[in-house]
């Protein structure tokens, strides 16, 4: 009622749930730091990979025997040079993208094309400078995120998988398949699986396989070589995890677009997220247990003083939902 009187744009829209404070400031900052770091690590990583565009299994690279599972290169054919990609012995013509591509009007015989590498020309030294700088940024942000998420309850509430997430997973997959999204207080089970996978599987794997490629780290931590079954296997896993992270990125962006890009982006910039009607704006029980502390209690339910968008509306809407 208040909002009608104020003539707010929200008033004439269909039913909305409460606006909640969903993402803590460190969650938002580390999110964007990763977005930038992973962008540079991917493109500099492909630059590094182009220096030897093949993947092997085992301790070493077979030059006089064959333990390669992926190889990109160019060959002369009766129709002229062509780019080829060989995966598990299956050879594909990938001219134009892999093995042979155009860059500013010149043909280059490189693994990944110039538009996918930093720098766009062959420069392993620079690729390494960029890659290792952002590797430190990525790991530093992961450390900050892990500590802050442990303290503010985000880790336990939103990322750690619980029996309930497994129980509700089939239903959530069905909902996602119908593009029916529930904008709740916390993430949906499928989201939690995705983020859990990134933080507890992909990030640790890509960091450890990166370290396993270091001859110094292999001397200090010999278990790294044994864990992955050899330096070249570690390099192959590093590459495969990169592919999975790219896949995660594609799905992540698709879901943001499908679930409402303005709301999703707002939550990752300002922290505030518009939930579906009927959402209880208070913290779920497990979150409340963990997410104690001054700021947690004060900020989770917007009040007229704390919400920059007019908490009166939220609180009122919430009360209405409950009274139904």
């Amino acid at each position: 009622m208040t909002d009608q009187a104020l003539g707010k744009p929200e008033a004439d829209r269909p039913a909305k749930g409460p606006l909640i404070y969903r993402q803590a400031v460190l969650t938002r900052i580390t999110h964007w730091v990763w977005a930038i770091a992973l962008f540079f690590m991917l493109l500099s990583g492909l630059q590094i990979w182009n220096a030897h565009p093949a993947l092997y299994v085992g301790q070493q690279s077979g030059f006089e025997f064959d333990n390669a599972i992926l190889r990109i290169g160019a060959e002369n054919t009766p129709e002229g040079p062509r780019g080829f990609t060989t995966v598990f012995g299956q050879k594909f013509d990938t001219t134009g993208v892999l093995g042979m591509s155009e860059l500013r009007g010149t043909t280059n015989f490189v693994g990944f094309p110039g538009w996918a590498t930093i720098p766009s020309f062959r420069d392993l030294a620079t690729g390494r400078v960029v890659h290792f700088f952002f590797a430190w940024i990525l790991v530093g942000a992961l450390g900050i995120w892990a500590i802050s998420s442990l303290l503010n309850g985000h880790l336990w509430r939103d990322v750690i998988l619980k029996p309930r997430d497994f129980r509700e997973l089939p239903r959530d997959i069905w909902d996602h398949a119908r593009l029916k999204f529930h904008h709740g207080r916390s993430y949906s089970p499928l989201q939690k699986f995705a983020y859990f996978g990134v933080f507890f599987v992909l990030f640790p794997l890509i960091i450890l396989t990166g370290l396993a490629m270091s001859p110094t780290m292999d001397a200090g931590w010999p278990w790294l070589i044994d864990l992955f079954g050899g330096r070249q296997t570690a390099r192959t896993i590093h590459f495969l995890v990169m592919v999975l992270l790219v896949l995660f990125f594609v799905i992540h962006i698709a879901m943001v677009l499908l679930a409402g890009p303005i709301n999703e982006l707002r939550s990752m910039i300002t922290g505030y997220y518009r939930t579906s009607p009927g959402t209880d704006a208070s913290l779920p029980l497990e979150g409340r247990e963990r997410g104690r502390g001054r700021s947690g209690g004060r900020r989770e339910i917007p009040t007229p003083d704390s919400s920059p968008q007019g908490g009166g509306e939220q609180a009122g809407a919430n009360r209405q939902e409950k009274s139904k």
Binding site: F40, L43, G114, W115, A116, T117, I118, P119, S120, F121, D123, T126, V129, V130, F132, F133, A135, W136
Partner: peptide
């Protein structure tokens, strides 16, 4: 596109110099 970052390939570029500090770390 990534031509934007080709300047990083220039030795003695100040941004590159900054990124190179990670090597000491």
């Amino acid at each position: 596109g990534c031509d934007q970052f080709d300047f990083l390939g220039q030795r003695n570029d100040p941004v590159r110099d900054f990124l190179e500090r990670a090597n000491s770390l």
